[in-house]
Every structure is written in C-alpha cells, then in structure tokens.
C-alpha cells in the first residue's frame, strides 16, 4: 500500500512539470470617443499575441455593428480596415449610447454616457512672457519668473476632467534652444485626470513660443482609469478595467471647452 502511494505521488510529481502556452486572446480592440456634437465612428483592431505562435483572427470587417440610443438603433456603415461610422446621427450630451456586435461567436457590447460640457471655463492669463534659453547649463530659476495660468471651471461633483495644452503655431520657436534639448519635444502635453474645478499651468511646462490651445475635457470614469498605472507583476496581472464586455480598448463619452493663450518671447 505504501509503495503504491509513493509511486502515485512520484507519478504525479513527474507529470506536473509542463509549460502552458498562453492562448491567443481574440477579444477585439475598440477605439471610439463619443464627442458631443459630432458624428460617431468606431475603429476595431486585433490584439497582438505575446506568443511566438501565429494566430488567424477572424476579420473585423463585415460585422453588423449597432449603435443604440434610447429607442433608436443605427446600423453602422463598414468603411474597411475595421472602421465603422454613422453619418445620420449627432451625438448629444447627457445621453447614453450602447454598441453591440457579434465577433468570433461572442457578443461584444459597451456603453458610454456623453457628459455635459464644462461650464465657466476661464483662465487668469491670456499671455505670458518668457526668455529664450540658448546656453546649455543656464539655470532656469533665475530667468523666467514662474508665471502661472490659473484655469478654473464649475466642478461637477464626482466628475473627471483632463487638460491638454497644444502649441498650434505652424513653425513654432523653441524656448529651450540648446544643444542638449531634444529636437522632437512634443507640442502637446497633458496631465493626469483631475477631480476638481481648477488647474494651474506653470510657465515651466511650455516648450515653444506662440499660441497654445488649452482644451478642458470632461471625461468619463473609464477613460480616467487609462491613466492609472496598472500592475505589471505576475502576482496581480489584471486586464485594464474598461466598460467593454468581451472586448478591450476605449469606448467613452467626451465633452470639451477650449481656451487659448500665448507665450511671448521677451
């Protein structure tokens, strides 16, 4: 009896050391921002497998993709390469939109609420003056004075916002024009989602002189989560939280307001 138990244990022991190849995840990748006042479009894509094996995922074209708002349903037009659009309907703030289609035998669905437009979006400065830095090693602290453009808006409790600032000059001039400065410094910068009604833009974040567009986005909670640093450890590996069922990506409502300011060269 003892021998049998030992033999069984050894057999189980030997049969256990195997490596499993992760199965390909066929869930489609959705990308759709539902802007109030605009038409709807959706981009579908495949996930890229982390395995060295190749997989043939079913085509993303030719699907019957339906967008529903209340009692109204719209069958989206396929434009090829996984793109679908609707030209009949204008998205409205305060309304919920649902999308659904069948892919690879599974029902994919998602919902998004288009938020209301931010109100009383104001700025404290319409321009600031900065000195150009051309010598490597010059201290910034003694030159530009740290001016701030204080943005404010009516905060809606529980809402999420995000601010982007973009230089919109055709040929922008760099503020830090030194050898050490990277040539491909972005003309747009963003911040993490905000859960308040104010935000300060410090002059130190500007990279170019000229006119800048300041966009305040009222975003949804699922988009805000994209900015959370998700765990990358095998101890707690989670798929990014989205509201999409049997799919991944982003399907979220957006509403915006815009201001402008200028960075003037001294």
């Amino acid at each position: 009896m003892k021998k049998t138990i030992i033999a069984a244990a050894l057999l189980a022991f030997i049969s256990c050391s195997k490596t499993t190849v992760p199965a390909y995840n066929y869930d489609p990748v959705l990308s759709a921002y539902l802007y109030a006042g605009r038409h709807f479009s959706l981009q579908l894509g495949h996930q890229q497998s982390t395995s060295s094996q190749t997989y043939d995922a079913p085509s993303l074209d030719g699907l019957a993709v339906t967008l529903t708002c209340g009692d109204s349903s719209y069958l989206l037009t396929g434009l090829g390469n996984g793109t679908y659009a609707d030209t009949a309907m204008i998205l409205q703030a305060g309304k919920q939109y649902d999308i659904s289609f069948v892919y690879n035998g599974r029902q994919v669905s998602a919902s998004a609420l288009v938020p209301e437009k931010p109100t009383n979006f104001t700025e404290s400065l319409t321009s600031i003056t900065m000195q150009q830095i051309t010598t490597t090693g010059t201290s910034l602290f003694g030159i530009n004075q740290g001016s701030r453009n204080e943005l404010s808006w009516d905060y809606v409790s529980g809402a999420y916002y995000i601010v982007t600032v973009e230089n919109i000059e055709t040929n922008p001039v760099k503020i830090y024009d030194t050898v050490s400065t990277s040539n491909d410094t972005g003309r747009i910068f963003r911040n993490s989602p905000i859960t308040s009604g104010s935000y300060d833009i410090n002059e130190r974040v500007f990279k170019y002189f000229g006119t800048h567009r300041i966009v305040l986005y009222r975003i949804s909670a699922d988009y805000a989560l994209l900015y959370n640093s998700s765990s990358t450890s095998s101890q707690s590996l989670n798929t990014m939280s989205t509201g999409i069922i049997n799919g991944v990506g982003i399907f979220t409502g957006i509403n915006v307001d815009t201001l402008y300011m200028t960075v003037i060269k001294q």
Binding site: N25, S31, Q47, T50, R190, L237
Partner: peptide, 18 residues
C-alpha cells in the same frame, strides 16, 4: 501566475498612444 496574453494600443486624447 498570470501573464499577458495580448497587447493593444489606445490613442489618447492628446494624440499619443499608450
């Protein structure tokens, strides 16, 4: 343990991808 099975990119509102 659990490992990534697939990857994808999302274009954010500022035009960058994550």
């Amino acid at each position: 343990y659990t490992a990534p099975g697939g990857t994808y990119a999302v274009t954010l509102l500022d035009g960058t991808t994550q």
